[in-house]
Amino acid sequence: MRHFRLKSLALMGLLAVATAAQADIKVGVILSTTGPAASLGIFEKNAVLLGPTEVAGQKIDYIFFDDGSDSTTAVKTARRLITDDNVDVIIGPTTTPAAMSLIPVVAEGKTPNITQGPTNALVQPVDDERRWVFKTTTNDEHEANPLFAQMHRSHVKRLAFIGFSDSYGDQWEKLTRRYVASPDGPGRGIELVAAERYARPDTSVTSQVLKILSRSPDAVLVAGSGGGAATAVLELRNRGYKKDIYVTLGATFGDFLKLSGKNAEGVYAPFAAVMGVNQVPDSYVAKKGVEHFVALYDGKYGKGTSNIFAAGAWDATKLIEAAAPEALKKAKPGTPEFRAALRDAIENVKDYDGARGRYTMTSQDHAGLDSSALMLGQLKNGHWTLVQP
């Protein structure tokens, strides 16, 4: 009996070693597929579903959770993924508030996070906590530069701002104030005459818009996403505002276009290649990467469905694919050593042409995209059109 037990234990040990050697790479995915940000999160989930399922002979498992567009739920889910599911990396969340809340969680769990939030503060500065956080979205300045350059060309002198009353709006208001205060920057010569805020789910911004109109601005900048951004644009147009409106990248598809309709005609926005890759010159460095994603996504979900949010989520899966082979040389999935090695490998990804642009990560840059990732667009006949310089 003892001999049999020893043999059994030995066999179990061999099986455990084999299982460890073949452990899958586990990717936790926290996205907003319900709630106010669902119009973004659903596209992101669709893109992750197209992500690689194997790398260097190692299977990749995706574990999906919906945070309901709620930061508290996102934090609870991240803790579960780290402690119970023992994931190697987390993609998401969708929104900036949720993404900000996750920073100390992933740092404590020493688990790399490729967030979908757009705000610079998610990855800057790269301190002891943010060294675990990366993002596949452009920085605020990348979005703002083409918008303010157009304002300068249009001789805007009086600018009004209206944005979400959360960390997304906070960052954009700070950036706007910084730009107009700079004597030699893109916002030079522009006065910020009004700054109003509203909650993402708000269905009315009448009081805020009336205050803005009382200041007679030459242009209005709306810092919002999806249907929430449409709320502000609709109120401005319905109140007779006919001058230029500028929106941030989050307002370039989906519910924004459906809800605002013709009222958004002529609105300016940052333009990413994925919004119209056929309009982008061949000299654009990441054009082939964008074309590959658009063909894949539109082929699965329908022509014209590819967008910036899906692109960012897809790029997150591809960065993991690019980094994993190096990490696998140093440790096995499911271990703290592998998570650390994967973090290091993501930080060293160079010249990867993704759906959002060319990524070159460094120890001080965890976004990896530069200003070439965004140009200037304008809504014409219901479609985003690249404004030629």
Rank of each mutant, 00 (worst) to 15 (best):
A107G: 06
D128Y: 04
A56I: 10
A56D: 11
T77A: 14
A98P: 11
I63T: 06
V126D: 01
T138A: 13
K135D: 05
T119K: 05
T73S: 12
V156Q: 04
T137P: 01
T95W: 04
V89W: 07
A47P: 11
Q58R: 15
V156A: 04
V105W: 00
V75C: 09
K157Y: 07
K59M: 04
G92P: 01
A99C: 03
M151K: 06
D85N: 08
F64N: 00
K110H: 04
V133Y: 01
A121N: 13
M151A: 05
I63P: 00
P125W: 13
T137E: 10
E129S: 15
T111R: 08
I103E: 00
T53K: 15
A74N: 07
V48T: 10
P52F: 02
W132G: 02
V75M: 11
T137C: 12
T77N: 00
Q124S: 07
A78W: 05
P93W: 03
D61I: 12
V89E: 06
A98Y: 12
K157R: 15
V106I: 10
N46R: 11
F65S: 10
E141G: 05
K76S: 13
T94R: 03
T119M: 05
A47Q: 06
P146G: 13
L49H: 04
R158W: 06
P146I: 06
P112M: 14
K157A: 14
N139Q: 09
V48K: 04
E141V: 14
D84R: 14
T95F: 10
V106F: 00
K110S: 01
A56H: 08
D84H: 07
N113A: 11
S71A: 15
K76Y: 01
K76V: 05
Y62F: 12
F64R: 05
H155C: 04
D128I: 00
W132I: 06
P93R: 03
Q124C: 01
D61H: 09
T73D: 12
T72S: 15
T119R: 04
E141L: 15
P104N: 02
D128T: 13
A78P: 09
G92T: 07
V106M: 01
H142R: 02
